[in-house]
Write a protein that binds this DNA or RNA. Structure first.
Length: 876
RNA sequence: GGGCGAUUAGCUCAGUUGGUUCAGAGCACCUGCCUUACAAGCAGGGGGUCGCAGGUUCGACUCCUGCAUCGCCCACCA
């Protein structure tokens, strides 16, 4: 037999098997009569590159998919990418800028050509990276949010919602990103605390030397002030009723208004009102009929309505205003102040509340079924703590601003006529039809229509994802969507719970009347050991492909999963992937051991291996049931750890060590076959976590036919395990450990003969396991005894007393002390048990099982005390 | 400002409707071993008054109240 190296080398193995799986189309799923199991991938940005978050996320999905496949389901993992409107456009704009090109100079068409070129060049890189990880997606189903079926679906949905009177166009205060020059949704604004200043400014009363002091954080917006507001109950300002004040710097005369909105205790109790640049001010302005003076351009510079500092950036204007106010003697003081500023989630610049004409989706009605079905458990969130967050958002959901002043995306299917009125239609021909009807003018032509320049929010396409990947918007009767939908599990990060998950649920009920998925598994955020978020700018994120090269894909997968309880942040450290790699090596070497054995058909199966086989069989079934349970609760980490211990501790350290024949001795056929059988089951259980090494070993283990693969093997259904043998083994394992400890502590070499005698009360020790005890402790003799053994080290395992007799003389005093300690402990223990058992309320109220257990403990403790007392006497 | 969640071994976390004098696991750590599967390993070992203070109970890591610290989400106080 060919020698194989003692270190597993994944470098040759992983690509080989991935190609094999692809070649035999093992990831492919088409509807059949099996039960479907479907996951749609959270589509990564088409031009993005894989980061650690993707690695975790997709590893979990792959584990779930592979396991479902091996559980007899028709598993389908649909991959795809997102056009990521604003992010991609920003990248293309930047690239063009580097070439000295401005997007407005080249125009929409030309710009989109560049964007597609960029997409084709960088798109798909991330999917190739996923393949390195082992992702078993059905690549034939790969979708893109802007490919024709998806594009058309988005447009169809827009028209549908418009016809249902849920989409409207209107002038509203929106979050404006002056860098990207587009409106944003509320969810795209991130509030951050910043150190700023509070400026106290004098506003003189008209025709008076009297003034009122107003506090503001944004002195540049004074240029757009159209009122000053105070609380009507504020006694300080009663004399201002009906008065006007003069706006500093621009000397505009504006009224003093009264509204309870103002908090008299803040600042000076007087608020300047700039309806164009603050949401609250806007609303007060509406209420009090104030004019709106918009002093900003769409890039955040001041326009001519500001009168001063025209063309300057808003932050420059702030400084200039500060100086100017000082010069004019209108600045009373400046205080340090911390407040929250909304930043654009994408460009990270402070957003500007701005009045603009946008498209909105009414959310309240749509949100209702989405909320209900999460609250009633029809859709489950893991961990469930997110239900609260979800509910809070849903209950307070506001209309969604869905238009973006960008070009890369789905263009809004609204078509304007010369008079400014518009029609909404799926394409320009339909639009023309409608326009003709609407105007009653049959001579209208396409050139009379002008399509809306804006595109839709990226999330307005991804919210359809679980439906649109099966083309279920355009073809609701499509057999594909009938079969796969609702999908099963969604795996994503909690930071897009509102952006994406909530909206997908809304879309699911709005367009199919059904939930889009049954379970949502929210992973944690990956952080470094200092709890910092992993990010490019911090440079604390390892390059995923480098990690894979260093530790193998299997190793990285295991490393990530070992520390990923649902919803908790993951403090990533390379040592974890190292642990994963080491585990792979352990499996590899266990295989080498088993493979090295030679079968001798003539030898009988020895008793000790018969027992080991019997034991492991039960343990395997018991553990498989545990793993099933972990999976049901999305405790992937626990499932893996359970398996890890099963393989490493139970199978390798116990089972294999017990059955291992002496050096170069043969093994009997039965034991060998059983061992191979267990090994194969373990490989299958491990496969979803470590697809590559398990395939490699499974293929090495036996001659397989071309196209056969462990990934399409079925996992056995665990049966109810008999626990008696497992318990008996636990006693013996503990005894073995104790004997080894004595050997080590007393410096008793492995060659030195020892004899073990056992006094077993309450049938604690199963004497048939003596052969195993003997083999694992290298004892020459194992014997049940009733007589006293004075010169022996002793210990107890529950009610069984073990004596280790060696050629050494024991230290009587030391032994006595040991026994005395244990005796005291056990007496105390018994006392606590008795206390419980003699408590009527305990016996009456505690479950029968608990009481029963107490009785058993009492019996064992009593036996143990008797044994210890006897032993103490023996040692006198 | 409102809400939610957390606080258990050096680190990261379990601890299942209150029931052991077991408070666990993995990693890290300490000791001894290159024992022909594996030093990416083997064997053995130490380590926590379960954030603090009360309360309920026969019994509290587990339930209640208050406090402290941290995290997350939401919110137009200039």
């Amino acid at each position: 037999m060919q020698e194989i190296p003692s270190k597993y080398d994944p470098s040759q193995v992983e690509d080989k098997w991935y190609q094999y799986w692809m070649k035999h189309k093992l990831f492919r799923s088409v509807p059949d009569n099996r039960e479907p199991y479907c996951i749609v991938i959270p589509p990564p940005n088409v031009t993005g590159v894989l980061h650690m978050g993707h690695m975790l996320n997709n590893t979990i999905q792959d584990v779930l998919i592979r396991r479902a496949r091996m559980k007899g389901k028709n598993a389908c993992w649909v991959p795809g990418t997102d056009h990521a409107s604003i992010a991609t456009e920003a990248k293309v704009v930047q690239k063009l800028a580097a070439e000295g090109i401005n997007k407005f100079d080249i125009g929409r068409e030309k710009f989109l050509e560049h964007a597609w070129e960029w997409t084709h060049k960088h798109g798909g890189i991330i999917l190739e990276q996923l393949k390195k990880l082992g992702a078993s997606c059905d690549w034939e189903r790969n979708c893109f949010t802007m490919d024709p079926p998806r594009y058309e679906s988005v447009i169809k949905v827009f028209v549908d919602l418009y016809n249902r009177n849920l989409i409207y166009r209107g002038v509203r205060m929106v979050n404006w990103d002056p860098k990207a020059k587009t409106a944003l949704s509320d969810e795209e604004v991130v509030y951050t605390e910043v150190n700023s200043k509070l400026y106290y400014v004098k506003y003189f009363l008209e025709n008076s030397h009297d003034y009122i002091v107003v506090a503001t954080t944004r002195p540049e917006t004074i240029l757009g002030d159209t009122a000053v507001c105070v609380n009507p109950n504020d006694e300080r300002y009663q004399h201002l009723k009906g008065k006007n004040v003069i706006v500093p710097m621009v000397n505009r005369v504006v009224p003093v208004i009264f509204d309870e909105y103002v908090d008299p205790s803040f600042g000076t109790g007087a608020l300047k009102i700039t309806p164009a640049h603050d949401l609250a001010d806007y609303e007060l302005g509406l209420k009090h009929n104030l004019p709106v003076i918009d002093i900003l351009n769409n890039d955040g510079t001041l326009n001519e309505k500001a009168q001063l500092f025209v063309g300057e950036d808003r932050f420059v204007a702030r400084e200039l205003s500060h100086k100017k106010l000082e010069e004019l003697g209108l600045l009373v003081k400046v205080e340090d102040y911390t407040n929250k500023v909304g930043l654009s989630e994408r460009t990270h610049v402070p957003i500007e509340p701005r009045l603009s004409l946008q498209w909105f989706l009414k959310m309240k009605e749509l949100a209702r079924p989405a909320l209900e079905n999460v609250l009633n458990g029809n859709i489950k969130l893991y961990p469930s703590k997110f239900v609260n967050t979800y509910r809070h958002w849903m209950e307070n959901v506001k209309d969604w601003c869905i238009s973006r002043q960008l070009w890369w995306g789905h263009r809004i299917p609204a078509y304007y006529l010369a008079d400014g009125s518009f029609v909404v239609a799926e394409n320009e021909y339909q639009a023309l039809e409608k326009a003709r009807q609407k105007t009653g003018n049959p001579h209208l032509t396409l050139s009379d229509l002008r399509q809306d320049e804006d595109v839709l929010d990226t999330w307005f396409s991804s919210w359809l994802w679980p439906i649109s990947v099966f083309d279920g918007i355009r073809y609701p009767e499509n057999p594909e969507i009938k079969y796969y939908y609702p999908t099963n599990d969604l795996v994503t990060a909690p930071d897009i719970l509102f952006f994406w998950v909530a909206r997908m649920i809304i879309a699911g009920y709005a367009f199919t009347g059904e939930k889009p998925f049954r379970n949502v598994y929210l992973t944690g955020l990956i952080r470094d050991k200092q709890r910092r978020k992993m990010s490019k700018s911090l440079g604390n994120s390892p390059e995923p492909l480098d990690l894979i090269a260093k530790y193998s894909a299997d190793g990285v997968r295991v490393g990530l999963l070992l520390c990923s309880p649902a919803g908790n942040d993951i403090l990533f450290d390379e040592s974890l992937t190292e642990q994963g790699r080491n585990f792979g090596n352990k499996i590899w070497n266990a295989f080498r051991l088993v493979r090295s054995w030679k079968i001798d058909e003539h030898i009988e199966q020895p008793a000790y291996t018969q027992l080991a086989v019997e034991w492991f069989d039960e343990l395997l079934n018991k553990t498989m049931a545990e793993i099933d349970e972990h999976f049901e609760n999305f405790r992937i980490s626990d499932a893996l750890m359970t398996l890890y211990k099963l393989f490493w501790d139970e199978f390798s350290s116990w089972y294999l060590e017990i059955i291992k024949p002496a050096y170069q001795q043969p093994i009997d056929r039965n034991t060998y076959q059983k061992t191979v059988e267990y090994f194969e089951i373990l490989l299958k259980l491990l496969h979803p976590f470590m697809p590559f090494i398990t395939e490699e070993l499974w293929q090495l283990m036996d001659k397989r036919q071309e196209g056969q693969s462990i990934m399409i093997e079925q996992l056995p259904q665990p049966r109810i395990a008999k626990t008696k043998i497992i318990e008996d083994f636990e006693i013996v394992k503990e005894a073995i450990t104790q004997v080894r400890a004595i050997r080590k502590e007393k410096n008793i070499g492995t060659k030195e003969p020892i004899k073990i005698y056992i006094k077993s009360a309450n049938n604690t020790y199963n004497p048939s396991l003596g052969v195993i005890l003997a083999k694992m402790t290298l004892a020459d003799k194992i014997e049940l005894t009733e007589t006293k053994i004075s010169n022996a080290f002793s210990f107890m395992v529950r009610a069984a007393e073990f004596f280790v007799e060696t050629e050494q003389k024991i230290d009587l005093e030391e032994e006595r002390q040991k026994i005395l300690d244990e005796l005291n402990y056990t007496r105390g223990f018994l006392e606590s048990v008795m206390k419980k058992l003699s408590n009527e309320r305990f016996v009456a109220n505690a479950p029968a099982q608990v009481v029963e257990l107490e009785h058993k403990k009492r019996k064992d403790a009593e036996a143990k005390i008797l044994a210890l007392e006897a032993r103490l006497k023996e040692l006198q």
